[in-house]
Design a protein around this nucleic acid. Structure first.
Ligand SMILES: [Zn+2]
Ligand SMILES: [Zn+2]
Ligand SMILES: [Zn+2]
Ligand SMILES: [Zn+2]
Lengths: 132, 132
DNA sequence: TTACATAGTGTTATATTATAACAATTTAAA
DNA sequence: TTTAAATTGTTATAATATAACACTATGTAA
């Protein structure tokens, strides 16, 4: 079993906000939302985000510059992430597929380069947006 | 066969620069480099980049906010991209693997959502950086 | 306990990346 | 030709992210 990370004050505040959000949050939207809790400046937000990403508690959606909480039993998948992104409503879902992660974890390119991490973003229409 | 795009003046200048570069280029680095050719402001660069990405002539490396020329017979793979990124020297290579693209093109998640596009970024050490 | 190292915080300023808005020009169709 | 669409030039500003430095809290070892 891996070490359970104890979140610091700022990390806790920011993680809770992201974890409760139904949609990915952007750094400055987070900043705005936590100012009443005493977090007043960008570096405080970015530091907490960096640590939370390192821990695997949250993931950055690179194509959106936004962050979502991990719901795949956390740390294990911090280095192997896959998301589906709806191009209409911007709904983002973390994909949890054993066959996908197995395929990608074992993928080797022509040079035999072995990878320690990957991030995959799928784009399309979610069920809701596809049927109207 | 698909329509061959003719590049406009600014698109040509910016594409040529990216195409000749051995490494991904960032927008403001591009701007700096083309100022002597009369492209003086960020919107001119970003517009050309947007079009070139649409056409599949270049790709954006999302995790690096940088652009590289496509070397996979262009347009076909604009909506299905995969890259390997060295975390030490930042070398980026476009991956061209029939089995990978077939696997991902056919991937369906639990909800049966079908995707029209994906982007995959692998991180690791390139051969050179791995052996020293 | 004390000393030290490490991690986290608060703060100001600034760097980097990207777009809004609008006028002028070029290109391609009708 | 005349109209529409795409591209360009330009100024200003928005959005995203980090540098730097002083200070505080926390953990570890003597
Ligand atoms: Zn996750
Ligand atoms: Zn949707
Ligand atoms: Zn390509
Ligand atoms: Zn390397």
């Amino acid at each position: 079993m891996h070490k359970e990370h104890t979140l610091t004050k700022n990390q806790r505040i920011i993680f809770d906000l992201i974890d409760k959000s139904p949609e990915p949050l952007k750094a400055y939207s987070i900043l705005f939302n936590v100012q009443k809790k005493g977090i007043k400046a960008p570096p405080q937000v970015y530091r907490a985000l960096d640590k939370l990403v390192e821990m695997g508690k949250i993931h950055k959606i690179e194509s959106r510059n936004a962050f979502i909480a991990c719901h795949n039993s956390s740390c294990q998948v911090a280095k192997a992430t896959a998301f589906s992104i709806c191009e209409i409503c911007e709904k983002v879902t973390e994909i949890s597929s054993a066959s996908l992660s197995k395929y990608l974890a074992n993928f080797k390119d022509k040079d035999g380069m072995k990878y320690s991490k990957y991030n995959l973003e799928f784009f399309g229409l979610c069920k809701k947006c596809n049927t109207r």
